[in-house]
Measured scan of single mutants.
Amino acid sequence: KKVLATKVLGTVKWFNVRNGYGFINRNDTKEDVFVHQTAIKKNNPRKYLRSVGDGETVEFDVVEGEKGAEAANVTGPDGVPVEGSR
């Protein structure tokens, strides 16, 4: 997949743990970017399912997906594990 941007910060708009996807709002362009649970690189080690929490700040790369921009290599800021869904 073509990389459109790297090390982008954003805020998780919503994430559905059961369906394994959601959207992140980019801090720079204010665009919403699709995020799938497989894109989460560093999950909260205390959680079994990969997820990001609503309102959580995350860092990610933006790649060209089949339906437009999507997140890849999702971590917390500066590469720490994500907090995950509460």
Rank of each mutant, 00 (worst) to 15 (best):
N27M: 09
S85E: 11
K7I: 05
D32G: 01
V35M: 10
F15Q: 04
P45S: 14
T29D: 04
D28I: 00
N16V: 02
E64H: 09
N73D: 07
G10T: 03
T6C: 07
V62F: 00
E64K: 09
E59Y: 09
V3E: 04
N27C: 08
I40H: 03
F60C: 02
A69T: 13
G20L: 08
E66A: 12
T75N: 04
L4P: 03
N27F: 09
D61R: 01
P77Y: 15
E70S: 06
G10P: 01
E59A: 09
T57D: 07
P45R: 14
T29P: 02
R86D: 13
T57R: 08
F34P: 06
A72H: 09
R46P: 11
P45N: 13
V35S: 03
W14Y: 05
W14C: 06
E83D: 12
Y48M: 13
K13L: 06
V80L: 13
Y21T: 06
D32I: 00
T75S: 09
K47S: 14
G79Y: 10
E56N: 09
N19A: 15
G20M: 07
L49I: 11
V35H: 04
K30D: 08
V17A: 13
G65F: 00
K7C: 05
G20E: 04
D78M: 12
N16K: 02
G22L: 00
R86T: 14
V63H: 02
R18L: 07
G79R: 11
G22P: 02
D28V: 00
P45E: 11
V82K: 10
N44A: 11
T38D: 08
T11S: 06
K47Q: 14
E56R: 08
H36Y: 05
R18G: 07
N16E: 05
P45Y: 09
F15A: 05
A72Y: 07
K1Y: 06
V52I: 15
W14I: 03
V35Y: 06
N27R: 06
E59M: 15
R86E: 14
G79C: 10
V52Q: 04
D32P: 03
L4A: 01
A72I: 14
R50G: 09
R18S: 09
D28H: 01
N44R: 11
E31H: 03
S85V: 14
N44V: 11
K2H: 03
V12H: 00
V12Y: 01
T11Q: 08
A72F: 06
E70R: 10
D54M: 15
S51F: 12
S85A: 14
N43D: 12
K41F: 08
K41Y: 08
V12T: 03
V33Q: 02
V80T: 13
F34N: 03
N73E: 05
T29Q: 03
V63I: 09
F15W: 07
V8W: 02
Y48G: 15
T57V: 14
E66R: 14
D78C: 14
R50S: 11
A5N: 06
K7P: 03
K41I: 13
D54S: 15
K67V: 06
I40T: 02
L9H: 09
W14S: 07
G10M: 00
F23Q: 05
I24F: 05
S51E: 09
G65D: 04
E56V: 13
N16C: 08
V8Q: 05
T75G: 07
G55T: 04
P81S: 12
